[in-house]
Amino acid sequence: MNDIIKENDNNITEEKVVPQKKPDPRSKLAKPERMLVLNSSPHLHTTKSVHKIMWSVIIALIPAMAMSFYYFGVRAGLMILTCVVATLSTELVMNFMKGEKITISDGSAIITGILLALTLPPTFRLSSAVLGAVVAISLGKHIFGGLGYNIFNPALLGRAFLQASFPVAMTTWSNPITLKYSAIDAVSTATPLGAFKFEKILTDYSDLFFGNIGGSLGETSAIAILIGGIFLLILKNADWRIPLSFIGSVFLLGSIFWLFNPNQYPDPIFHLLSGGLLFGAFFMATDMVTSPITPKGGWIFGAGAGILVIIIRLFGGLPEGVMFSILLMNGVTPLINRYTRPRIFGESRK
C-alpha cells in the first residue's frame, strides 16, 4: 500500500517538472483513503509444500520397498530403479516439450515411479515397465496439464495401461522365496485372491501379514504398508478418512457376505490382507490431486472404492479390483467435490 502511495507522489512531482503533460485522469480514481487488498483463494497457508509432502511419501514407502527387496531380491530393486529413471526422464522430456521449468525435483515423478514399480509382478519385463512409466507420466499427468491437473492417479493409469497391454505378463506371479534363491527359475504361483477365486484355497494369515505370498512387488507385506501408512497419517500428509472408509467398507461388506455364506465368500480379514487393498488404500487412494478435497468427500470416496473392490472381487471376472475401483472413484472425484462443497456461511439450505 505504501508503495502505491509513493508512486502517486512521484507522479505528481513529475507533473510539476513537466507541465505540458496532461494529468492522467486515472490518478483521480487511484487515490483511495484505504486500500482493500483482494486476493484469490487459497487464504489459509501452511508450511507444507509439494516438495515436503512428496518426500514424506517417499519415506513412507521405504518399508514396503525394503520388504519387496527382502522377498523378491535384486529384481525388486532393479524394477524400482528402472521405473524411477523412466518416470524422471519422461518428466524431463515433457518439461522440455511444454517449455516450462523443470519439475523433476518436486518428487512427484519419483513417487509415481516407485508406486508403479511396487504394483508390478516381480517377473515383469523391465522394458515393458518402462512403457508403463512413460504412459503414467505423459498420458497420466502431463497431457492434463501437469501435477495438480491430472484426473487419474498417474501410477495406476500406467498400471492399467500395462494390464490392458500385457494381460498375461501382468497376471503371472511368482513365489517369493523361490525367486530369491534362484534368479532364473521362478516358480509360477497364484495370488491369494486368485487362488481363492479359482480354486477356493485360503492362504495362511501370517504369510499374508508378512508378505510371503505371490503378488505385486510392494503389495504383499501388510505390515510394511501399515508402518508406512501410519507414518503418513501421523504427519497428516494423507487424509485419514480415505483409508479408514476404504478399508472399513471392504471389511463391513466382506463380513456381510462371509456371514451369509462362509464357503462361497472369503472372510473379511482375508479381504483386508490379500491383494493390493492396503497398498491402494494408503498410497494410491490418498493421492491429494485425485481424491476429494472436502472431509465428507473423503468418506464418500473411500466407501465407494471399498464397495467397488468387493463387487469386483466377488462377482467380477478378475480376482483383484483395487486398481479399477480407485481409478473409477478418481473419475467421479470432481463430482464428489461439487456435491460436498461446504455451505457458505449465511447461505440458505436448499
Binding site: 519385463r125 522394458s127 515393458s128 512403457l131 498420458l139 495401461f161 490392458a164 497391454s165 500385457f166 494381460p167 505378463a169
Partner: peptide
Amino acid sequence: FNPWMIMILPPGAFL
C-alpha cells in the same frame, strides 16, 4: 517386441 494388446482393443483406438 511384445505387442501392446491395448492398441488393438477399443482404448487403443481412443488413445
